[in-house]
Design a protein around this nucleic acid. Structure first.
Lengths: 229, 229
DNA sequence: AGCGACAATGTTGTGAACAATCTAGCCCCA
DNA sequence: TGGGGCTAGATTGTTCACAACATTGTCGCT
């Protein structure tokens, strides 16, 4: 069953789930019949998605799914890095024992998934853990930004887990983060999150490079990949 | 002379410049005649401004200028803090000698303004210096976010400069930041920016509290002001 | 007087029609 | 054969009218 009928949400879902390819044209009339909505509603949805950075609109030429360049993926990941560290600090301050229990429960399930080789399930729990931390830290502004960033960069997230040995390392890092939160150790939590996301950034770089190795024609490669230490 | 005719920009300008009071109703038809645009254009503008967080829209009840709470102002300032530190690091890596010269020129002018007691001019140059640093760091994603955040929190920025002794201290901090950029010392630049924005956060808290002391009835005060160390 | 139903008014949401603009295919001519 | 201009179709941008909804003031009843 579908939870919302808002064309905006449905279109967003369709884009992030890869139902529409990058650079694919989004014709208002087609979307209208597809979602059973009027062209006005579609138009409003496109305006929102444009603001969110999921699509690009050119005057009199319509909207297309936005293709996130490798360079932009790095920028997004860096911003995510900065915001997650902020929220990690805040979470270490505010976390209640109930919060910590939740986080540990997620961690335990992640451990199971990893043991069973359920990589996809692990990834989902990974995202869930981070979201739970965001919730603990209780910063609405940063929260919304992170959600938007996530939807923009989702296309790049899939390759990152394929790196050999990465899931095991990732789990260890998450354990450290939750431990720091439980201990209310702000600086340690910041450091643990920084280390985790530093590795995530490194892995993203690896994923993009290996992807470009397979099909170097796919995207016009950006020159400045290695910019951050 | 007016630079743009886009109703969205004009409406945004009108809101951030205080032409519309917080919580004031924004009736589409009125705005349409005021800006000489159709209701459709106004509608699109409202959608954008809603996404930017400058207004709130309720179904069938129209749009109002968003009132930023003190709590939200803190959240915004914290996010700004995190992003500016990121960009400061990046700027320290990438800055060319020409960039450094520009920054030093701005700094010199700030010094003059301060000596002449031109506080408003100092504030404008302050913003200009920060923007120049953003440009050096060359992270489009973070840049756009910072611009949006700035427009949201502009109402709170005015009080901060009034704190006794703050401008002098602020200038010293900016000098330290630019010095770190010139030396390409990433960590020092991060630290200098962190210190600067930490003081800015503290000053914001002071400004809000003194404002509430003058008119405690103005806004329903949030309970958790002192949340960050 | 107090209170609830209800009409009157103002405002937003939506669909249809029309105008403005872009794109692609075609023809004509060198 | 290949390129330039032109027409036809497709698509977006805009206006208008009207329906849907919320709010407010009024009237009648107790």
């Amino acid at each position: 069953m579908r939870t919302t009928n808002d064309p905006c949400d449905r279109l967003r879902q369709a884009i992030v789930s890869g139902e529409f390819q990058p650079n694919e044209r989004l014709v208002e009339a087609d979307l209208a019949v597809r979602f059973g909505a009027g062209r006005t509603a579609i138009r409003a949805a496109l305006a929102v998605l444009d603001q969110e950075g999921l699509i690009v609109r050119e005057p009199h030429r319509g909207a297309r799914v936005r293709l996130i360049s490798a360079r932009e993926a790095f920028e997004i990941e860096q911003v995510r890095n900065a915001l997650e560290r902020l929220l990690a600090r805040s979470a270490a301050q505010r976390a209640t024992s109930s919060d910590v229990a939740d986080l540990r429960a997620i961690l335990a399930t992640m451990h199971e998934r990893l043991r069973d080789g359920d990589t996809l399930g692990y990834m989902q729990l990974n995202a869930q853990l981070h979201r739970r931390i965001w919730k603990v830290s209780d910063n609405q502004v940063a929260f919304k930004m992170l959600v938007t960033l996530k939807s923009q960069s989702i296309r790049f997230q899939y390759g990152t887990i394929l790196r050999p040995g990465r899931p095991e390392q990732s789990l260890r890092e998450h354990v450290a983060i939750v431990a720091a939160i439980a201990a209310h150790d702000t600086d340690a939590c910041d450091a643990a999150m920084a280390e985790h996301l530093g590795h995530a950034l490194e892995t993203l770089r690896w994923a993009i490079e290996s992807q470009e190795r397979e099909r170097p024609w796919a995207a016009p490669r950006e020159s400045v990949l290695r910019s951050q230490p």
